[in-house]
Design a binder for these strands. Structure first.
Length: 427
RNA sequence: GGAGGUGUGGCCGAGCGGUUUAAGGCACUGGUCUUGAAAACCAGCGAUGGCGUGAGUCAUCCGUGAGUUCGAAUCUCACCGCCUCCGCCA
């Protein structure tokens, strides 16, 4: 959510900022509703003040036994009460429209975010590793995984339909090893606190991190309950600080969380239908930081570095992309995507997305802290995938495949595999 | 699922129809004292929004929402959370 004060004082800057990401802000609607809202609020408060005064005077008169005089005040109060009821009803209606409108406006991109309309215009900021050359025809992760008997999409389809997978044997173990390895790296080397969280959140929590009104369709909802399956553990974890006022000396908060993620993938029909790239359910290790507003830009770079460390340790070639204004998510002010090399696709594919939301989420969820001067201020929130577990598995299968169909386990993961250094056919 | 209890500021906790402008304490901030610190003492100290250059001022907020009343933290109803006991169960 944007700052209403800024909208009032500096509307044009906001409108221009939003235009950069292709969002047309309805200036007229906003000004009309906002003017009306302010009028109604002033009137409402004035009536309330009158009513408060009359009630007090009434009490004083009754205490003195002047019942007749008191009676007159009571009539007056009733009359004001009626006016107040009308005014209040209108205020609630206007305020509802306005705050509903405000909550569907995306964040303003930071100045250094390149202008662009879609992923085509993202900017590469760095590249790490060199894609390996193979002296045989490379297979994609589906052929490799099913060939070894470790990936089973047919059984998954029987159980649950499309976009699910079943893992077996050392393939399942490797999947678990990847998550363990990531979690250990972030907690033991990067200073994050491990958390375990609910995989369902309330509508209020969901609306704290993004716009529930806008993105309801992307989530799975629990029937008959106001609960949603989380599309990422950003949802529960960032909400730790909702409606809180933290102490500045407790900042930054850094959390790492391994969880499954559930996405309806509405609107991506026909996209990445093969394999594990795009699933209704996948695991992810998320890293979240809650920081002082002056530190968020710095924290963002650090957090991207933490995600990159995982790819480096796994020796997977990747590149770091700065998303252009048109490709950023709703709540983000700046986003870096990490793209890992997939030999079978002969392309880099997204494996992590690291965003700085600045005060956007904090304002939605009233996440604040007391600064050194004792004033309450909004926090800044950031998060990133560190990394998507399923896609990491895909990248390992493809990059570490051997001519005989086996897959070498990356050195960093061997200890997590109980010493197993190669995936062979599952019996 | 059944029975009972409970929800008040950053935290603890009093208040159960009208100077509540939410007591008191802890924590925090400033000051006095001290070589320094602690202790003690003095003072300050909630959130959100409106108006005002400003000192200020007004409104709202005691789990949430409705209601009763001239007036609600306080009374009524519904919902939600938490706690205790019983039942069931991984």
């Amino acid at each position: 959510m944007l700052d209403i004060q800024q909208l009032r004082k500096d509307l044009n800057t906001v409108v221009e900022g939003l235009a950069r990401r292709g969002f047309a802000f309805d200036k007229e609607l906003f000004m009309k509703e906002e003017t009306r809202r302010k009028e109604l609020q002033t009137r409402k408060e004035d009536l309330q003040a009158q009513k408060n005064r009359l009630a007090k005077e009434y009490g004083a008169l009754m205490a003195k036994g002047q019942a007749t005089e008191a009676q007159a005040l009571r009539l007056q109060s009733t009359e004001i009460g009626e006016q107040l009821a009308d005014c209040e009803a209108e205020y609630i209606a206007v305020d509802g429209v306005l705050s509903g409108f405000l909550r569907t406006i995306p964040n303003i991109p930071r100045a250094e975010v390149p202008q662009g309309k879609d992923a085509e215009e993202n900017v590469k900021v760095r590249e790490w590793g060199t894609p390996k050359t193979f002296d045989f025809v490379v297979k994609d992760h589906v052929d490799i995984g099913t060939g070894l008997g470790g990936l089973d999409f047919d059984t998954a389809a029987k159980l649950s339909g499309a976009r699910f997978s079943v893992l077996k044997g050392n393939m399942a173990r490797l999947h678990r090893a990847i998550a363990q390895f990531m979690l250990n790296t972030h907690t033991m080397e990067h200073g994050y606190t491990e958390v375990y969280v609910p995989y369902m959140v309330s509508d209020v929590s969901a609306d704290g991190v993004s716009s529930l009104a806008k993105f309801k369709e992307d989530l799975f909802k629990i029937e008959g309950r106001d609960l949603y399956l989380i599309p990422t553990s950003e949802y529960p974890v960032t909400n730790f600080v909702r409606d809180e006022i933290l102490k500045h000396e407790d900042l930054p908060l850094k959390f790492a969380c391994h969880s499954p993620c559930f996405r309806s993938e509405a609107g991506s029909y026909g996209k990445d239908t093969r394999g594990m790239i795009r699933q209704h359910q996948f695991d992810k290790v998320e890293i979240v930081q809650i920081v002082h507003p002056e530190k968020s830009a710095e924290a963002h770079e650090e957090l991207v570095g933490h995600a990159e460390t995982i790819l480096k340790k796994l020796e997977l070639p990747y590149r770091t992309m700065l998303l252009c204004t048109g490709d950023m998510g709703f709540s983000s002010a700046k986003t870096y995507d990490l793209e890992v090399w997939l030999p079978a696709q002969n392309a880099y594919r997204e494996i992590s997305s690291c965003s700085n939301f600045e005060a956007f989420q904090a304002r939605r969820m009233m996440a604040r802290f007391k600064n050194a001067q004792g004033k309450t201020e909004l926090l800044h929130t950031l998060n990133g995938s560190g990394l998507a577990v399923g896609r990491t598995l895909v990248a390992i299968l493809e990059n570490y495949q051997n001519a005989d169909g086996s897959v070498t386990v990356p050195t960093a993961l061997v200890p997590y595999m109980g010493g197993v250094s190669k995936l062979e056919a599952v019996k």
